[in-house]
Design a protein around this nucleic acid. Structure first.
Length: 679
RNA sequence: GCCAGUGUGGCUUAGCGGUAUAGCGCUUGAUUCGUAAUCAAGAGGUUCGAGGGUUCAAUUCCCUCCACUGGCUCCA
């Protein structure tokens, strides 16, 4: 290798004019990408490990291929015998593999690390990338290899002789991964009873979990909840989750064959529910003092504040290319939101500031096997609330208020859940009084998990999981008390890591970093739908399944006994729709029994039957679905005969007070004109 | 991502080397009916998830891929 001319304004200094390497040299062409420069040391170390793996692959190759050859030979012999015996025809024998060169050629004597910008379209800044090759060289030397690097920023002349065997050329993509090097010590699970008594349940070791017995005194629901949350899914059902069939049957949402797994399409009725949920949650948090914002769905990796967090899960993100730049699709709004906070002028007297964002989509590229219907998606919708609090006492007050808010929300969904509080032993000791008050206020047992130390950016995490029909749990509401993100820097595994540097200041000139509460008061919208469907299925033998009236895509249905009453039925339906209540008509030429059955299967909250009698007396007869209640003598409905329409409207309005209203799209107002997405 | 299972008209499903069975739904006709399924007839599979292979012949056997599901892992 010979230096010819500088290729950049400040080429890397290198004493010698050239470099001559004899023997079998592993030349590693390296280019450094944008996000990698967040931590040059880590990426260099990862590159070094990859090079060592490559050397082991090269030097171990003759042995491996011989093993392989032996295996193939054995297989071929077996196959020949099998064919002679006359079965298993049609199988092609594997071809024998042979080494192309002398095993002595599979050796690495020296390593040359060579900067090669042309390997990537997304290069990092030169000044930082420059450090990488010398660093890898030094790290290789530390591992006992003879290593060299070529200077950065020169036009160079060189010649190479390639040995040309199987592993002579290879490509490796090394992604910056800020893995936690710390081994997490075991945590402890305890059950807190409504009378504030605390029982040890188990610790996080396998032996302890095996020994753990859930006391029989608890309800089946609570025992299933503990099973799922602490003991993994032990004993959970093996069937397909119930909500998948239901979401398809009701035409709420569906898989889509032309996109990535875990990205769903939403049909009219499902979207109606999503929109209602959105408006409902938004109203609730704004009533509770929130402001709203909307931040972009993608962010750059060239901002160190952001990369600090994104580099922890590189395999779990979607990349977007835009010209010569690339961006990550957000997996939460936190990054750009916190970046925005850091650019704001925040007065202490304005705190707590509650910023609400309806994340139309957040993207998490979950592993294929982790996806599960509406429970776990790669693209999901998250109503997200962040509260900036001046200090811990204010954060605690805010936490309590959010606890009450989210309870109200879950109650309005008709969902039942338990509570998990995960925190450090120290924080629990110092705060157990108000935490126990919160638990006791539920009058239900709760689970706590205690860590000996803080491992995450939050000091406390609060979760409300819902049970599925199969006994799995998934969290809706969550809350985290974040004591790290607002700081300027944190010490992490001996390294100083940049944080968002969010600051408040007050009149006296005092400043500080706020504590941030990450709260989703309702959980992901898709997961709410999951929970509604699974809850209905879970209790279907004892309780009437269905959606709360305010959330039902169709809130009432008018059935005419014969064709003669159709005009009257239409008049009724129009009157109801004009009051912003979603009503359709079963205008098919079918018997009343069949129409009733149709309404039952669709979980319609109110069914209105009109026949000769009703038409003559200008009344309606209604069947009120007892959604969520115990079956009444085996019936799902309560019958109220021949009342004026006004009286019916009064009954249904009572259920809709305080809830958002949406119109039913026109084609859906008649069964005959309804648009079907699934046939 | 790993291990295992599944994939047949819109839905539920029979078949498993010789080009496919039924029910629901749909369409049409009859019926005009009082609270969970009226009767009859008809259409609907031209790729039995996709691609490749074996075979005279593949929905059926083999391989690869995709999707979904269960378990593991994971859930910022």
């Amino acid at each position: 290798m010979k230096k010819r001319a500088p290729a950049t304004s400040k080429p890397q200094e290198y004493e010698e004019d050239g470099l001559q390497l004899e023997g079998k040299v592993l030349v590693c062409f390296v280019s450094v990408e944008d996000q990698d420069t967040f931590d040059v040391k880590i990426i260099s170390k990862q590159a070094r490990d990859e090079i060592i793996k490559a050397i082991q692959l090269i030097e171990g190759f003759p042995e491996r291929i011989e093993e392989n050859n032996a295996e193939v030979e054995k297989f071929n012999k077996g196959l020949v015998k099998a064919q002679e015996r006359g079965f298993r025809e049609g199988e092609n024998p594997k071809q024998l593999k042979k080494l192309i060169l002398d095993p002595a050629m599979y050796k690495v004597d020296k390593i040359l690390v060579y900067p090669w910008a042309h390997l990537s379209n997304f290069l990092s800044q030169e000044s930082v990338a420059m450090e990488v090759c010398p660093l890898i060289k030094t790290m290789m030397e530390e591992k006992g290899y003879e290593a060299y690097f070529s200077p950065f920023g020169w036009y160079k002349a060189f010649s190479l002789d390639c040995l040309g065997h199987e592993v002579a050329e290879m490509y490796r993509d090394v992604t910056l991964l800020l893995a936690s090097t710390e081994v997490r010590a075991s945590s402890i699970f305890k059950i807190v009873n409504p009378d504030k008594s605390i029982e040890f349940f188990c610790d996080s070791t396998e032996e302890s979990k095996k020994k753990a017995k859930i006391p029989k005194k608890y309800s089946k629901d609570f025992r299933d909840f503990i099973k799922s949350e602490v003991l993994s899914s032990r004993g959970a059902g093996r069937d397909e989750p119930a909500h998948i069939k239901l979401m398809q049957r009701f035409e709420l949402a569906d898989f889509d064959d032309a996109t990535d797994a875990g990205n769903f399409r939403w049909y009219t009725k499902g979207l109606l529910m999503k929109n209602l949920l959105r408006e409902y949650v938004e109203n609730k948090v704004v009533d509770n003092g929130a402001i709203y914002v909307d931040t972009p769905v993608m962010y750059t990796v060239k901002n160190k504040k952001l990369t600090a967090q994104t580099a922890r899960f590189p395999a779990r993100t979607y990349w977007v290319h835009s010209g010569n730049n690339r961006y990550l699709l957000r997996f939460a709004s936190d990054f750009l939101l916190f970046n925005m906070f850091s650019q704001m002028n925040i007065r202490a007297d304005q705190l707590p500031i509650r910023a609400y964002e309806y994340e139309q989509y957040a993207f998490r590229r979950e592993q294929a096997g982790e996806l599960a219907g509406l429970r776990r998606l790669r693209a999901f919708t998250m109503p997200d609330l962040h509260s900036l609090c001046k200090d811990l006492p204010q954060a605690v007050e805010e936490f309590k208020s959010q606890f009450i808010l989210s309870n109200k929300i879950l109650q309005d969904f008709g969902l039942k859940s338990y509570m998990i509080i995960r925190t450090t032993e120290k924080f629990w000791e110092e705060n157990s009084e108000w935490l126990l008050d919160i638990i006791a206020s539920e009058n239900e047992p709760a689970l706590i998990e205690l860590w000996p130390e803080r491992y995450y950016y939050f000091i406390l995490k609060y979760e409300r999981p819902i049970l599925s029909a199969q006994g799995h749990t998934a969290c809706l509401c969550t809350n985290q008390i974040d004591v790290e993100s607002a700081l300027d820097f944190v010490e992490q595994y001996g390294e100083k890591r940049q944080k968002y540097d969010i600051k408040w200041h007050d009149k006296s000139g005092e400043t500080g970093h706020p504590i941030i509460l990450h709260n989703s008061p309702s959980g992901a919208i898709e997961r709410i739908v999951w929970a509604l469907l699974e809850t209905s299925e879970r209790y279907k033998d004892t309780k009437v399944p269905g959606f709360p009236t305010w959330l039902s895509p169709i809130q009432c249905r008018v059935l005419s006994i014969s064709e003669k009453e159709l005009p009257y039925a239409e008049k009724i339906a129009d009157a109801i729709n004009s009051k912003q209540i979603r009503c359709d008509i079963d205008d098919r030429d079918e018997k009343i029994g069949k129409k009733i059955r149709g309404a039952e299967i669709e979980w319609i909250p109110y069914t209105i039957v009109v026949g000769q009698k009703e038409m003559e007396n200008n009344t309606v007869s209604i069947r009120k679905r007892l959604t969520g209640q115990e079956f009444k003598d085996g019936n799902t409905n309560e019958q109220i005969n021949e009342i004026p329409l006004k009286k019916f409207l009064k009954i249904i309005e009572k259920e809709l007070v305080g809830f958002p209203r949406k119109q039913l799209p026109l084609p859906f107002r008649k069964i005959s004109s309804r648009i079907s997405f699934r046939q």
